[in-house]
């Protein structure tokens, strides 16, 4: 019978600091990928609502492909394909970490593009026209009328995406990025304690993601009340 408490008592001093150190890498990947996803998402939401059909088709194609691919497959494509297609270029800088951020960011960009588009389309055109007819400049109407309302619609799904992203960073271990999951594998197999180590890692992920999901729930309730 596996005595987890005893195993943890003996090993936690070695395991926990190391795992938490690599959890920092996980957080760094998540944060960088989140920023990239917001930028890519905004760009493609605008392209998707563009006046030019070509741009709309391109944006739709990107969104469908990036959302239709499993994240692991997208990570493999982003990390392994470009260096092979363009072997003449210098790929020294393209580390696993960069590949992970770009891959997750491109996937998130497609998800957020749809979220942002829904946010933009939910607002009636009249809002902006009313603001302008009251004498606001376009910038003012954006800052005081459009954005505050759009934020309210967009914030909960964006926060939910962020929680999913935090968990999805675990997939970066599969392209060899040294984050918490990869480190857990090496500890688990070196110490012959897979159950204890992976349960501990699950607990660490839970501690990182659960406060976020509680915050999202509070946020959703607040935004609903004030509407």
């Amino acid at each position: 019978m596996l005595k987890l408490p005893q195993i943890y008592a003996e090993n936690i001093n070695r395991w926990l600091p190391e795992l938490l150190w690599f959890a920092l890498t996980t957080l760094k990947i998540a944060l960088a990928a989140f920023v990239l996803a917001v930028l890519v998402g905004l760009a493609f939401a605008l392209l998707r609502t563009s006046r030019f059909a070509v741009l709309r088709v391109l944006a739709t194609a990107y969104i469908e492909i990036a959302r239709g691919l499993p994240i692991v497959v997208l990570l493999y494509i982003v990390y392994f394909v470009p260096p092979q297609l363009f072997p003449g270029l210098n790929w020294q800088w393209f580390t696993g970490f960069t590949g992970a951020v770009v891959g997750l960011g491109l996937h998130g960009g497609a998800i957020l593009a749809e979220v942002f588009r829904a946010g933009i389309e939910a607002l009636h055109k009249g809002q902006r026209e009313a603001a302008m007819s009251l004498g606001m400049t376009p910038t003012q109407s954006m800052a005081y009328i459009i954005l505050p309302q759009a934020t309210r619609i967009v914030l909960p799904p964006v926060a939910n995406y962020a929680i999913g992203l935090l968990k999805d960073t675990s997939l970066c271990s599969l392209i060899g990025v040294n984050e918490i999951m990869n480190d857990a594998k090496s500890i688990a197999f070196a110490d012959y304690q897979p159950m204890a180590v992976f349960v501990l890692v699950a607990a660490i992920y839970f501690v990182m993601s659960y406060p976020l999901s509680l915050a999202v729930r509070v946020l959703e309730r607040r935004l609903n009340v004030s509407r």
């Binding site: 968990k167 890692v201 699950a202 839970f206 999901s213």
Partner: peptide
């Protein structure tokens, strides 16, 4: 829902 599917698979 709070932990990655990959970790659950490994457990």
């Amino acid at each position: 829902r709070g932990t990655p599917a990959l970790v659950q698979l490994f457990v």
